[in-house]
Amino acid sequence: MPRTIGMVIFRILAIGVWIFALLIFVGGLSTDFLTCTIIALIIAFVGWMLWVVGDMIHDPEKIRAEQRAARAAKDPSIVLDEDNEHERKRAANGHWDGRANHGHAQPNDETSPALAGVEVEDGEALVSARRETGQSSALSRTISPSPIIIPPKTLSVSVTRETETVSGSYPATIYVYDPRPILKLKEGRAEKISVVTRPITLKSRLNGRQWRSGVDDGYAVEYKGKPFGVLFNHIAVIHIRAILESGAKNVELVAMRQGWYQTGVPEIYVMVPTLEEAKESETGNASLKEYEQRQAYGADVVAATAIFRVSENNWNGPRIPDEGFIAFEATVEQLPVPEGSQAKPHFALKSGGVLLSEITARSTAAYFASEPLVGKRLKILVSRYYTSLTIEAYEI
């Protein structure tokens, strides 16, 4: 009743506003027609808004239904709820109090949510349905697909050597800041000196200039634990940094004393690699490390059945580290082509029920490499290659 009264009041107001707009329009015929017409239209619009408000007060569900229908007419993806209120009220084992979401019955506390809206006449059938529902919900809680990761054989992988020695054919000068630790070095005799990796500051006894690690270029060096100078050779500095970043704790250099820079200051040289020697050494170390990793996964003596790359954006599995491999037990499946489509079928690379990558004909090399793998049980090694991932497939 209050809603009806509210609707009547707003409709009376709307009619009054429309009459006022009509009077202004008629008056404009003898005065300023254009101005009065614009004012009359604005007032008429206000009257229409009052009429709509009255309708919303009286039957808000009708307004919402009309709005949903208008949206559905513009967007085909919107599915309208075709159930009327009468059908919703008679949903079996449900309560309808006018507050539930439209088209959904609120389940009775005594009934499983999966059975709401289902008329059950047999008590035994109800018990059976409850049992099956309980089992399926328990399975959904306990079983979640995940990739099958193959762990490496850790015993076959050697650890990075704690101390690495830098060698080469180029004699680089060590700039001596404090000559005292090396005064007893014998001329022409090779000695091991170490790269200083801890923060230190050196002060030159010749000109008083300071060198600080982490601020100035180069690496400080020490003899028997006592820092004495700095190596500034650019190639050697990059090579030493690469060795430290690979996991070595200590880096040694082969040094030799050759005369005196000036009185009281020995002249010291170290043998460092040229650019070609540094590249060769780093490539050799990387190759050895990669071989050991392949050995850990049992892929050091068997040729891969197929090798291809996929985009990192087309990878749904665990993140692949910047270095090394992750191995999975996997299969390749051919996905069905939609009826009427002329497109080539896609291939799905899966592990443990998880889709790792979907390969389409656009990736030509990966597509043709995947086709012979369909139906085979595979071990795949996945490694990072810039923004792509390299997949090596081995038939099990």
Rank of each mutant, 00 (worst) to 15 (best):
167 S>H: 12
173 T>I: 14
144 S>E: 06
163 T>W: 04
170 Y>T: 14
167 S>I: 13
171 P>D: 08
180 R>F: 04
148 I>G: 00
143 I>P: 04
171 P>F: 02
161 R>Q: 11
153 K>R: 13
166 V>G: 06
161 R>Y: 06
169 S>R: 15
139 L>M: 09
165 T>S: 14
149 I>T: 12
154 T>Q: 11
149 I>W: 02
161 R>D: 12
144 S>N: 07
173 T>E: 15
177 Y>H: 12
155 L>I: 12
146 S>Q: 11
170 Y>R: 15
162 E>D: 10
143 I>F: 04
149 I>Y: 05
146 S>R: 13
178 D>N: 10
154 T>W: 03
178 D>Y: 08
149 I>K: 13
160 T>A: 08
147 P>A: 04
159 V>C: 11
170 Y>Q: 14
170 Y>N: 03
152 P>T: 14
158 S>I: 09
143 I>K: 08
160 T>I: 10
172 A>T: 15
175 Y>P: 01
173 T>P: 09
178 D>K: 13
154 T>N: 11
148 I>Q: 01
142 T>H: 02
152 P>K: 12
148 I>S: 01
140 S>M: 01
168 G>D: 09
139 L>P: 02
169 S>T: 15
157 V>C: 06
166 V>T: 12
161 R>W: 05
141 R>T: 02
178 D>V: 12
177 Y>K: 08
148 I>F: 00
143 I>H: 05
161 R>S: 08
160 T>K: 07
160 T>E: 10
164 E>P: 00
139 L>D: 06
151 P>E: 09
171 P>A: 03
153 K>I: 09
155 L>F: 11
172 A>D: 14
154 T>V: 13
163 T>H: 07
